[in-house]
Design a protein around this nucleic acid. Structure first.
Lengths: 248, 248
DNA sequence: CGTTTCAATATGTATATACATAATCGCTAT
DNA sequence: ATAGCGATTATGTATATACATATTGAAACG
């Protein structure tokens, strides 16, 4: 039941002690050797075991607690938590990068650009309470000859006024916004949908064909910035999300 | 351009200094006041500004760096990073909880249960290299009277031998596995698909209707544990993922 | 017997200090 | 000029120490 033999301590790689303690304990938990509910050695025990100061041990344990692997209780000690609610990290790439990763030539085409006062629907999508100017954009992303995704976007001009002067013919709104607007929060909705006439037409697929729809709403410091809907033909797209419990 | 007035320092809530520094700087970055590339005050400046030790400042900055908001360079200082590649945290609930959250009665029904040696397809789905015993399960999750999701699952019996003795008539494989097997990693694939005859039949929808498919592969300490495919009728399901840049 | 009080304990936060390490600037010798 | 060298600087990691705080367990008390 020992974490490491004292002699092993200096035998490791050039990992910092802090990292060493972290990965040791994480390993114990993930391998199941320490089941949920198991009490982890007290800080002073780990201090002795690793022959280091309490601060170092404390930093490692605090980190494990923040990652949700363990729970710390004063006077009682630290305990392995029940397996957490599962959460996955979903990487949302730039469409250009995605297409180029497939080895296909990327092309972007702006279809429509309309400046208007926000309709009730616009406000619903953006999460705006009051009316104001918005920019509505519709664009196509191509992989080689075939349409890869249809993009329907709303930009809140009250939050990003410079967008009013941009025609978005040469640059897609996504890359344009990134780097210009620091975003603090985003919400995604992912669903399946049958293509209606308009969408089928744009994507060059049959009406009624299944599509994957990814909608993203972005805020920057409490202000709604943009709402975007990407529509992918089912065959062309799979989202991949990978999960590793802790962020060591 | 000052972070806080010296007098304000004690005027705050009962936040720890560490938390205080963290949220102050995060606010500056997210609000855009400190643009990407901006150099953050040196540790010794913050030390003076908050009237605290370098360790405290260092801990806060290290945390911001780990969260990806800033980049630290020796001898040069710390800088606000370019907006990172977007990543979303996708919560994957238990289906029972999901259904009950809709206010509908939940019911589970096991359709098929088959123990067999892994086929080539099974091995592909599970990520197994060698052949071995697997358990194939097909089940339906209901919301009220209507089918809510079809579950197609493979369990690697070499990793979870107890599953061979369970009939899964009264408990769904998901809840059964959770808590029994500590899982270390999972991979999700999310896509849209048209329902074929079999699926349409099980879910009581039209053949060709769009469905959302979520596939999950789970490992525990390097061993493949299970592969599951949830098929939802498009109308019944939307995945929601929310993102906040830092995990303060 | 139940309640209150108090001491012990483990974690939480902060300090001052020390030395290691990487990157940069400026000086010097070629 | 420039290649190399060393001093300087900011961060990285660790230590010993101190006191705060929440919680538990046991002793003291009504």
């Amino acid at each position: 039941m020992s974490l490491v033999e004292p002699d092993d301590i200096d035998g490791g790689e050039s990992l910092s002690l802090h990292q060493r303690i972290l990965s040791d304990i994480r390993e114990k938990i993930l391998s199941g050797a320490w089941a949920p509910g198991h009490r982890i050695p007290f800080e002073h025990e780990l201090t002795a075991r690793y022959n280091c100061s309490r601060m170092t041990v404390n930093k490692a344990l605090s980190q494990l607690a923040k990652a949700g692997l363990i729970e710390r209780r004063r006077r009682s000690g630290s305990f392995v938590r029940q397996p957490q609610s599962q959460a996955a990290v979903l990487e949302l790439h730039d469409i250009r990068i995605e297409v180029e990763a497939l080895g296909l030539p990327y092309r972007y085409e702006r279809l429509e650009r309309l400046k208007r006062r926000s309709s009730a629907e616009d406000r619903g999508l953006l999460g705006l309470s009051a009316s104001g100017p918005v920019l509505a954009l519709e664009s196509l992303h191509f992989a080689g000859e075939r349409p890869f995704a249809l993009e329907q976007r709303l930009i809140n001009l009250s939050a990003v006024s410079e967008a009013a002067d941009e025609d978005f013919l040469d640059i897609a709104p996504g890359p344009w916004l990134i780097g210009r607007v620091p975003w603090s929060e985003a919400e995604h909705r992912i669903r399946a949908m049958a293509a209606d006439e308009t969408i089928a037409d744009a994507l060059d697929i049959d009406a009624g064909a299944p599509c994957l729809v990814v909608e993203r709403r972005t805020w920057s410091a409490e202000h709604p910035v943009t709402h975007v809907r990407f529509i992918y033909p089912a065959e062309s797209h799979t989202l991949v999300a990978r999960f590793t419990p802790s962020q060591g």
